[in-house]
Design a protein around this nucleic acid. Structure first.
Lengths: 218, 218
DNA sequence: GTTCGGTTTAACAATACAGTTAAACAAATG
DNA sequence: CATTTGTTTAACTGTATTGTTAAACCGAAC
């Protein structure tokens, strides 16, 4: 270990650093920050545990890097769709389809993020800024602004039941994310294995938008 | 400490034991099993930390007692309503109203249960049996059986759009529970303080059933 | 007033874990 | 081949944490 004092670790050395971050992602999302062990991360990354500290110094720094990364994986895409000029119906279909696909590939993500947010609520701000690189005051109008216009116009025109943009987003996201957050329980109570759970979520990609749009009929 | 070997701790000595369990409930639901400290539980209960071990021996036993208790707090009421003879519409209104009230009083419960289930998925079975004192095979028909009949009959009669009982339960529970599970994030992104969050959930008690029943219109 | 069960005190053992460090090492670069 | 840079080895520090234990304590029941 030569230059920890002399020169700070190279900001983006790719290989080992990202392998460690990947490993940390796996371990933290499975066990949570408090339950994760630095040694397990090192093992998962296939490196010595000294190297983990070499790149990330402390567990907390590593945890925050992983959290930021996980948050960035989940929210920006959603924000982009909600804020876009697409018609309401298309927004619903895209959100559901894209997010279900994404969550099927990252099953631990919702549980991890919700658990971390409950244990360290101060990270909510950090999460928000990781979405857009901006503070809450900037994200909020981006998320709800366009939507409010659209919903308001549709309600006036009589093509949709009136609903606040907040409820619109919250209801939709709830039905998309919750089944993944509660996946072990859903699987147990419905008697599903992994394959059947996946199949159910695949079916949900078409059923859920229909259901949701039906709720919005005037 | 006299009789730890001789006689096992009295199963229900009320006072101190329940105070410890209450304290453990508070600490575990806030910090999660891995993040909780036995010393903090003792402090919260106002007893010496030796006494916590006297009654519950290990952290894991205490954690399981708390988990069982928390699960029992959340699910049996819901199961009873879904399994009842009440008409669909009444089921929706009761579930929403009762659960929102209950969750407003126990804000950490959803986050805690979801986190624990993700970190220790083997507890899903334990949770199921804590609901009804029975295995999954018994709970499942109790939860979905009556509902399946009702939904099927209504679909035939043309009074409701067809929906599986699984989707019916999952969609409803999602929209009820998720806002609490993601509460810190919801508060941050919508710019709410505790009082406004509560107000929003109170309003939701009437809005959500209307929304949900609208989705079920044929 | 003595006995007894719950409780505290206070100290202890054992381990788990985060984080540090010096030295050796290896592979690429010049 | 000498230098640099990333990596391993291996040992170590310090502390947090779980769990145990013996002895004293204290109030209530007998």
């Amino acid at each position: 270990m030569a230059q920890h004092r002399g020169t700070p670790p190279p900001p983006l050395d790719a290989d080992s650093e990202t392998r460690i971050l990947d490993a940390a992602h796996v371990v933290f999302t499975r066990r949570g920050t408090a339950g994760a062990r630095m040694a397990e991360i090192a093992r998962e990354a296939g490196v010595n545990h000294a190297l983990v500290h070499y790149y990330f110094r402390t567990k907390q720094r590593l945890a925050e890097a992983v959290f930021r990364r996980a948050a960035g994986q989940l929210f920006p895409a959603m924000l982009a769709v909600f804020a876009s000029d697409l018609p309401i119906e298309e927004k619903v279909r895209r959100i559901v389809s894209a997010q279900v696909d994404m969550l099927l590939e990252n099953r631990y993500l919702p549980g991890y993020l919700l658990a971390e947010l409950n244990h360290y609520p101060e990270r909510a701000e950090l999460l928000l800024s990781s979405i857009a690189g901006a503070a809450a005051d900037v994200v909020r109008p981006r998320l709800f602004g366009k939507l409010a216009e659209q919903l308001d116009a549709a309600a006036r025109a009589g093509t949709l039941r009136p609903i606040t943009p907040q409820a619109f987003v919250l209801n939709l996201v709830s039905m998309v994310v919750y089944p993944f957050a509660a996946r072990p329980f859903v699987m147990a109570i419905m008697g599903l294995d992994d394959a059947r759970f996946t199949a159910m979520m695949q079916a949900r990609k078409t059923e859920l938008p229909d259901f949701y749009l039906a709720a919005l009929r005037p």
